[in-house]
Nucleic acid binder design. Structure first.
Lengths: 171, 171
DNA sequence: TATTGTTATACTCTATAACTATA
DNA sequence: TATAGTTATAGAGTATAACAATA
């Protein structure tokens, strides 16, 4: 329900001590949020995603597409369900995703022995693109880790995986 | 274009060596993905988000709502633009978000000295709810950090913030 | 019966442009 | 002219239910 006019305001025009005046100058207290793992992950994720977008915009590739292309390249002949399981994608959502990769002639569905399934492969064009994408990704990753030592980078990934496992072990 | 029937399949029913048989049994190679910061963050984020959902389902509160309520509680009288800036939300997207919190009588818009702006406050009901939510969040956070020492937890947040800053310093 | 891929659908998050009322 | 809030809209991510073909 996005209806809601803006008129119930001047009835109390200026409440108590709150006088933002020009918004954005006052330092905002984030409370305990900066001390929360989930908050730090979310903010980092947004920033990382945006850097990825900028980095891969030239080829119009999003993170999830890069993941799918990588998995198919590493495992030629995988079924859609297997790719979905590996990357945590719902099968239903994978269909339009793969459709676009197929439309762009980067990946293709071939027949499998199980006639219900599709065996997935990169096309030659897809493999060539992946070479460039890997380079882009290398630079992207270098930017992300710019402030980290090699050890710290490895530990960040380790701690993230442990957090993920902990969260998943509570169903 | 999500149109695309399923008939271009049996023409090549069983290609080469790919015989998934029953999908899901074969170990899938994720390539270099497990060594990428962005991938680790994304997978962790999804798991953390789901644990949060389960934890807060009873009160029908999502992470972003918890963040907004926390910021308003810590800074009574803040304007919408200020909350948005603090949490990285677009002003346009904040409107329906706040509408729902207001509809549920958890937060409210009051008048500000600047008559263009709204001063935001938690209602009594909102403050009472926050007490329960903080407890839920404490348990949620405890689950996430179950496999981490206090030091590791602090460093995870530190490394995430550094990664975020690194990503943001490349506009 | 169960599984694979698919369609349809819905809700949330994110992003941009344009409008209004104030400043 | 600029700012705060708002509307409208669009795209992407995630989720569930149900169906046809195949096992």
């Amino acid at each position: 329900m996005p209806g809601r006019k803006r008129m119930a305001r001047r009835h109390a025009a200026r409440a108590r001590g709150a006088s933002p005046g020009r918004a954005g100058l006052k330092k905002v207290d984030l409370g305990h949020l900066p001390n929360l793992i989930g908050y730090a992950i979310r903010r980092a994720q947004i920033a990382v995603f945006q850097d990825f977008q900028r980095s891969f915009a030239k080829f119009n590739i999003r993170p999830i597409q890069y993941g799918v292309l990588t998995v198919i390249e590493s495992n030629p002949g995988l079924t859609q369900t297997q790719v979905c399981a590996a990357l945590g994608i719902k099968r239903a959502n994978f269909v339009p995703l793969l459709n676009e990769l197929a439309r762009r002639k980067l990946a293709e569905r071939r027949g499998a022995v199980d006639q219900r399934a599709n065996a997935l492969y990169l096309t030659k064009k897809g493999k060539l693109l992946m070479r460039k994408l890997r380079e882009l990704n290398k630079m992207h990753e270098r930017r992300l880790a710019a402030g980290l030592s090699g050890k710290e980078r490895a530990q960040l990934i380790r701690l993230l995986n442990r957090t993920r496992n902990a969260a998943q072990s509570h169903p």
